[in-house]
Design a protein around this nucleic acid. Structure first.
Lengths: 217, 217
DNA sequence: ATATTATTTTAGGCTTGTCTAAAATAATAT
DNA sequence: ATATTATTTTAGACAAGCCTAAAATAATAT
């Protein structure tokens, strides 16, 4: 008995608590959920009563084991559906997110088991993000922002952080996909931009872009 | 701008108006939607304002062209997803309905186009029901209830009316699937039950069952 | 240590979709 | 033609999830 809105909040809390290691604050969550702080407080209370999160007034929230399990199950579904859309329906990389946001809420254990099997039990989704298993176990990838690499370093792209469709389209165009090798040629200190090579082609990436590309540590 | 509840109402109205040829009455709809007449009246007003139905107080509703288009689009999605579940994910016939009830509300034109293509542009779903095309055209099958056939007649099963999972399981067990040939051996007048043969095996079917099996006219 | 600023919560209200109980209307039986 | 019964609508209420504006609390600056 968990609503769509509740699932989305739990998923967001999970992602935000992965980013920083502290409690997730009301305003952070409001921004992530595209809503107002007051609405977040309402929902937080509900989730807390249902014991999906622990909540200390004015000091943010943390997922309980129960809440984390829900979040990971939603993420699992999201990533399996994204894989399906790209591998089977020939969606391109940048088109899948919105649709997967809907599909992730379909309730049917059997469906997800069958889908997983149909896809050959994939370990990562098309963005390179790991797919949690049936028990909510997820392999933490050793990933760092491309932005942090020094000139001369080369590394494999494992994931893209933002799911903004303009970014994904751009990355697709220059061939910056998970699995690809990327090499840092030069880095400008004053604005954090860098020149890189992918497939033996050179590109300039702004700091915004290079912070969104995650590579092997 | 159409909600899940609205889509479900329109779908139900469509199905009910296929069954009988008159306006769909509030109580019929209430029963079909598993809700109360007062709730139906509320929703009917909203759908009427939005011009999905025409509504005469106390005399029931009819779909407008606009409303029919929505209903058929939902039905199209439902039937394509059912086909996917059975053909690709190896669901059995009787398991798909519930899941398809959820999947039919996913909003993405592109997804449905791709799914249709992936399935090879099927014309009927696993229950033998026709799949409306992209423009909402649906081929009306010439179908009659098995219950109306006379002894000696043989005919091809084209669809099953009720989607109750017990019924579907039972029909699956005796091999009564769309495409199969069924022959009426004998019919009891007093209770409407009949003896039939499928795959050269004989079965007794109650009137309830034989009214739910639809065959070629 | 206190004042200012930023964040969070509370209070009260809105919409959607549901409900029950009562009133209105239509259908049916005498 | 009128009374009874069945159906439908109205009225008023409620939960979920959101909102704005105001109040409370925490963080920060002096």
């Amino acid at each position: 008995m968990i609503s769509l809105a509740e699932e989305n909040y739990l998923k967001s809390i999970y992602h935000l608590s992965q980013a920083g290691s502290k409690s997730v604050l009301t305003n952070e969550l409001a921004e992530a959920m595209n809503t107002k702080a007051a609405s977040v407080t309402d929902m937080i209370k509900k989730l807390s009563t249902k014991e999906f999160i622990s909540y200390e007034k004015y000091y943010g929230v943390n997922l309980t084991a129960k809440g984390k399990a829900v979040a990971l199950s939603v993420i699992r579904k999201h990533r399996l559906w994204e894989t399906f859309l790209v591998e089977k329906l020939a969606f391109s990389w940048d088109e899948v997110h919105e649709v997967a946001e809907q599909l992730e809420h379909i309730q049917s254990k059997r469906l997800i088991e069958k889908l997983d099997e149909y896809l050959g039990f994939p370990k990562v989704d098309p963005h390179g993000d790991p797919i949690p298993d049936n028990n909510g176990k997820i392999k933490a990838l050793q990933q760092v922002m491309l932005a942090t690499l020094k000139p001369g370093a080369d590394s494999t792209i494992v994931a893209v952080r933002d799911s903004d469709s303009h970014l994904l389209k751009y990355l697709d165009k220059i061939g910056a996909r998970p699995g690809k090798i990327i090499k840092v040629i030069e880095r400008e200190e004053y604005d954090g931009s860098m020149e890189v090579s992918i497939n033996n082609q050179r590109f300039f990436l702004s700091k915004e872009v290079s912070e969104n590309i995650l590579v092997n540590a």
